[in-house]
Simulated assay, not measured.
Amino acid sequence: MNIRLAGPVVNKALPSGSGMTWSAGRYFVVGDDSPYLFTLNRKFAITARSLLRDYPIQQNGRIAKAIKPDYEAMASVVWNGTVWNLILSSGSDKETRGAGLLVSTDGKATVHERDMTVLYRDFASLAGFKTGQLVNIEAVAVARDVAYFFNRGNANRNILFKVPLGDLLTYMTGEADKVAGIRLHEAALPQLNGREAGFSGADYWPEIDSLVYSASVEGAYGAYDDGAVLGSYLGLIPLPTLEEGALLDLTRSAQRLSKVGVPLKTKVESISLTHTERRRAVGALVADNDNGSSEFFDVVLTIAPRR
C-alpha cells in the first residue's frame, strides 16, 4: 500500500482530536478532553459544535485530566434510516471514562447515552485481563453487520474485539443489558525504540473488505499517562484473513508515516475515509500531540495491481 500525505493543518480551537467520521460532506470530530462534537469542512475549519455532556472547562478550553471522559473511539452507524455517530470513552478509568453515545447527524440533536461498563468488563474478562487491568478502547469501526473495537496495547495488549452490530445497538439504546457473541483477535504491531505501537484509529474500506487502522507509539507505557510522541503507522487488516485463535501479525505490514522520506513524530488518533474505490481510498487523519491542539492530514491510499 502506498501512502501519500498532505498537511498538517493545525486547528488550535479543537483540543486533543481523537475520533473522526465523515458524513454528507462534513467531518465530525471529538477530542478526548473536550465536551463537544465538532463539525468541520473539508479544509478542517470548524463550522459548528454541539455539547455532548456538560463538564467544567479550564481556561485552556480543556477538561481536567482527572475528570475527562476520554472520548477516543468514533464510527458512523446507520440505524433506523439515519446516520449516527457512535462515540465511546476509552474505559481506561472506571470512574470517568465509561461513556457511550449515539448522536444523530440529521440536525435533530438526538442523543442516546449508555454506560459502557458492562460491555468493557466483558471485554476484559474474555481477554483474561488480570485484576486491576482495564480495557483501553481507542478506535471502533463498522464493517457491514459487525463492529470492531480496537484495544490499544500501551496498557495491556493490542486486541480486536468483534461485536455483532445489531446486538451493540440494542445495548447502546438500553434495550439489552449485555452483548452476546463477542469474539477477539490478538494482534502484534511493530516496535519503535523498544516500544510496541498501539492501535489508535480505524475505518472500513468496503471494496477490499479490509479495516484501515492507525497505530502510534509513545515513550511511556500505560493507559492513563501520556509519553513522548515517537511516531505513527497505518496498515490494512483484510477481514477474510482473520482466524479465530490465531495471532494477527501486523509487524511487517504496518507502514510508518513519513513525508519526503522523513518519519513524522505525530500521534495519529483516527482515520476517516471519504471516498473509496477498488485500489484507491481518500480520507483524513487527525493527530493529538498532547499540546491542546489538533493536527489534520489529507491522506490518499493506493494499492498496486497484482502482477
Rank of each mutant, 00 (worst) to 15 (best):
V212Y: 00
R256Y: 03
D249K: 03
E218C: 11
E207V: 00
A215T: 11
A228R: 13
L250S: 08
S214K: 06
G222S: 13
L247I: 05
G219V: 05
S216K: 05
I208P: 00
A202K: 06
L230Q: 11
G235I: 06
A220T: 09
E243N: 01
G222F: 09
L239A: 05
Y204K: 05
Y233L: 01
V262R: 14
Y213C: 08
L248F: 05
D225L: 13
L247A: 02
L234T: 03
A215W: 07
D203Q: 04
V217T: 14
Y213D: 07
Q255K: 15
A246K: 15
K259I: 15
Y221W: 09
G245R: 06
G245Y: 11
A202P: 05
E218G: 11
A215M: 05
Y204C: 04
L234G: 02
W205V: 01
D225P: 04
S210A: 15
S216T: 09
L242K: 02
G261W: 12
T241S: 14
S232L: 08
A215H: 07
D203P: 10
Y224D: 15
L236E: 08
Y224P: 00
G231W: 03
L248N: 12
E218A: 13
L234W: 04
D249Q: 12
D249T: 07
Y221E: 15
D225S: 12
A223P: 08
L250D: 07
V260S: 13
E244F: 05
G235V: 08
K259C: 09
D249Y: 04
I208S: 09
Q255S: 12
Y221K: 14
V260R: 12
G231L: 03
L230I: 00
T241Q: 15
